[in-house]
Simulated scan of single mutants.
Amino acid sequence: MTKKLLAEFIGTFWLVFGGCGSAILSASFPQLGIGFLGVSFAFGISVITMAYAVGHISGGHFNPAVTVGLFSSGRFPAKDVVPYIISQIVASIFAGAILYIIASGQSDFSPILDGFASNGYGDHSPGGYSMVSAMVIEILLTFLFLIIIHGVTSKKELAPFSPIAIGLTLTLIHLISIPVTNTSVNPARSTGVALFDDAWALQQLWLFWIAPLIGGGFGGFAYRFLFEKNNILKSHDS
């Protein structure tokens, strides 16, 4: 278990540091900014690389919504859900702290004025989308994310390619929803940067826990009973 939790910590740290770091440090850099297209690929690439690096150790969740989704499908034991989520949250906060230290090295940097890759709705949505829009898109995209994760990991012959499929899915998710919420689908990713942003980020953080967990839970449940009705996978015991 120690190795699994360490793998989740490293993988989640890389996801938040790579994805949010690209948004904070590179997205709006004068003339050389990578924009939201680059940020989308940064999130996808971070998942692909860590899934290959440590996925064989922990399963490569890096996301509380994925952990809950795999539990709801019967692929992950209940006793490991809370330890995994704690490891993911701690890793995301550590990544946010490191990013804050680095970003603060720029003399005129302000997380309040420049943004700190936090997720938001209403006035804090990049495109000004409402709370309802944010809730709907976060639930839907996390639901579909879990459907795809289950699908590409359900057969051994697909295993070598599953990290690529999952990473590209996350890239597409960001391309769709960055204008709406700055894209969460991952409560840990949202928490890690919200703690270092303005007060509004923490005030709106509840949505980016509830929506992904609902979407992830229903995604796992749906895949289990729609596509594995006669072949439900047993939960791991370790």
Score class of each variant (00 low, 15 high):
residue 197 D to L: 08
residue 164 I to N: 10
residue 201 A to E: 03
residue 190 S to M: 08
residue 191 T to K: 11
residue 218 F to H: 04
residue 215 G to D: 00
residue 165 A to I: 15
residue 168 L to D: 03
residue 216 G to R: 02
residue 223 Y to H: 12
residue 162 S to M: 09
residue 184 S to A: 12
residue 218 F to Q: 02
residue 194 A to G: 07
residue 208 F to A: 02
residue 160 P to W: 04
residue 212 P to V: 03
residue 192 G to E: 00
residue 209 W to N: 01
residue 211 A to S: 12
residue 185 V to E: 01
residue 224 R to G: 02
residue 161 F to W: 15
residue 214 I to G: 06
residue 204 Q to H: 14
residue 206 W to I: 05
residue 194 A to N: 05
residue 166 I to H: 05
residue 166 I to S: 05
residue 172 L to G: 14
residue 188 A to S: 13
residue 204 Q to C: 07
residue 172 L to K: 11
residue 166 I to E: 07
residue 198 D to M: 13
residue 194 A to I: 05
residue 213 L to Q: 07
residue 187 P to S: 09
residue 174 H to M: 04
residue 203 Q to P: 06
residue 177 S to L: 06
residue 205 L to V: 04
residue 172 L to V: 15
residue 226 L to F: 14
residue 205 L to Y: 12
residue 165 A to Y: 15
residue 208 F to K: 00
residue 200 W to E: 13
residue 163 P to Q: 05
residue 163 P to I: 01
residue 194 A to S: 14
residue 203 Q to A: 14
residue 196 F to K: 00
residue 197 D to V: 03
residue 225 F to S: 06
residue 212 P to T: 04
residue 188 A to R: 03
residue 209 W to E: 00
residue 159 A to K: 14
residue 185 V to N: 07
residue 175 L to P: 11
residue 208 F to I: 01
residue 168 L to R: 06
residue 187 P to V: 04
residue 203 Q to H: 13
residue 167 G to C: 09
residue 165 A to K: 11
residue 200 W to L: 09
residue 192 G to L: 04
residue 190 S to W: 02
residue 168 L to G: 04
residue 166 I to C: 08
residue 190 S to T: 08
residue 215 G to N: 02
residue 179 P to L: 00
residue 200 W to F: 14
residue 168 L to I: 13
residue 191 T to C: 12
residue 188 A to I: 01
residue 159 A to D: 13
residue 212 P to H: 08
residue 171 T to L: 15
residue 224 R to D: 07
residue 160 P to R: 08
residue 210 I to H: 10
residue 167 G to H: 09
residue 195 L to S: 04
residue 201 A to S: 11
residue 188 A to G: 05
residue 196 F to I: 02
residue 200 W to H: 13
residue 213 L to M: 15
residue 180 V to P: 09
residue 222 A to D: 01
residue 205 L to H: 12
residue 223 Y to Q: 03
residue 219 G to D: 00
residue 207 L to Q: 08
residue 173 I to Q: 04
residue 168 L to A: 06
residue 219 G to R: 00
residue 187 P to K: 07
residue 195 L to R: 03
residue 171 T to S: 13
residue 202 L to C: 08
residue 200 W to D: 11
residue 222 A to H: 05
residue 185 V to H: 10
residue 197 D to R: 05
residue 216 G to F: 02
residue 170 L to K: 10
residue 172 L to C: 15
residue 174 H to K: 06
residue 169 T to S: 14
residue 214 I to S: 09
residue 177 S to G: 13
residue 170 L to C: 09
residue 221 F to A: 12
residue 192 G to Y: 01
residue 207 L to M: 15
residue 187 P to E: 06
residue 221 F to I: 08
residue 209 W to L: 03
residue 191 T to L: 15
residue 211 A to G: 09
residue 198 D to W: 11
residue 226 L to Y: 10
residue 170 L to I: 15
residue 184 S to R: 09
residue 161 F to Q: 14
residue 174 H to G: 10
residue 213 L to W: 11
residue 215 G to F: 00
residue 207 L to V: 12
